[in-house]
């Protein structure tokens, strides 16, 4: 995934969110090398040059990762532009991206052999190194350099568990926020494979939620992992047919329940917490 420190392009850098988070990233060690907003080429934001197109930015800079700060309905256009220009990894943060757009972005990314994280995700944090997205990567109460890999669909639940980890004396090798949509580019299985291979990670915390089958699909890989996995699944009393905030968080036709995910993970050898505060206890008991 993002094993070495990436040079980052911020698409939508001239918008208020893009500008705010570009400044936060720059202040916290992220190598934001360029920004991009159609028609705004030639400006500077936070000392970073802005280009009208991704291709123009690529002519002047080596770019490893683009983070897309544009509203949901324009996210596909921005993502397609970045992938077609040859950016190897992209993060789509926006919530409410139409799922047909996501399917198209994902198909193009696969064909171009580009990595997609998101949509509807909080981004990634490498404590002590950098962060990309909308997590407060600078907060020493949430993040500390360490050897626990954390992967979460949700930013808010990720924040809570990271807080508990740091309060409990742990730190993170990386936090990966995958997103709460029914279809996301990077899955739990992808993240577990990355953490399993990562020499800086000793154990993994997986934070799932109801809906879909991503947690069940990850369970198959957990069996083959050498590193222990502690898991928590949100939405244990989510009713059938109701969306629990995230577009992907819905039990339908009796499928996607927390119980199904928890038993699949436990069967595969993961240590499964019933309340969030149990995660640190389970790590301690490893």
């Amino acid at each position: 995934m993002i094993s070495s420190k990436p040079n980052v392009l911020v698409q939508g850098i001239t918008g208020s969110e893009g500008t705010y988070w570009a400044e936060q990233m720059l202040a916290n060690g992220t190598d934001v090398v360029a920004g991009c907003t159609p028609g705004k080429g030639g400006q500077e934001v936070a000392g970073v040059p802005v280009y009208s197109t991704v291709v123009e930015a690529l002519v002047k800079h080596r770019i490893d990762l683009s983070v897309i700060f544009v509203p949901a309905r324009f996210a596909k256009g921005a993502a397609v532009e970045a992938i077609e220009a040859g950016v190897p990894s992209i993060i789509v943060l926006a919530e409410f991206v139409p799922v047909h757009d996501t399917m198209e972005i994902l198909a193009l990314a696969r064909r171009a052999e580009a990595k997609l994280i998101g949509p509807n995700c909080p981004g990634i944090v490498f404590p002590g190194r950098d962060f990309v997205g909308i997590m407060p990567g600078w907060s020493d109460r949430l993040f500390a350099p360490g050897r626990i890999g954390v992967v979460s669909r949700s930013g808010s639940l990720g924040a809570l568990i990271n807080l508990n980890l740091v309060a409990g004396g742990y730190g993170q090798s990386a936090f990966l926020g995958l997103g709460g949509d029914p279809i996301v580019g990077t899955t739990f299985r992808d993240a577990l494979e990355w953490f399993e291979a990562d020499p800086n990670t000793d154990a993994v915390v997986l934070l799932g939620e109801v809906g879909g089958t991503m947690e069940e699909e990850a369970a198959g890989f957990i069996r083959s992992m050498s590193k222990p996995v502690v898991a928590f699944i949100a939405g244990q009393n989510a009713p059938e047919g109701k969306r629990m905030g995230h577009a992907g968080a819905m039990v339908s036709g009796g499928k996607g329940t927390a119980a199904s995910k928890m038993s699949a993970l436990a069967d595969a050898g993961a240590h499964v917490a019933t309340v969030p505060s149990d995660v640190v206890q389970l790590l301690r008991a490893l």
């Binding site: 949700s154 808010s156 639940l157 934070l207 949100a234 939405g235 009393n237 905030g245 309340v275 969030p276």
Partner: peptide, 17 residues
Amino acid sequence: ANGAGLTMSTMDAVTAH
């Protein structure tokens, strides 16, 4: 609560307790 994941987890904790 803020965020879908935290809100669901908060409800889970209410039930668990």
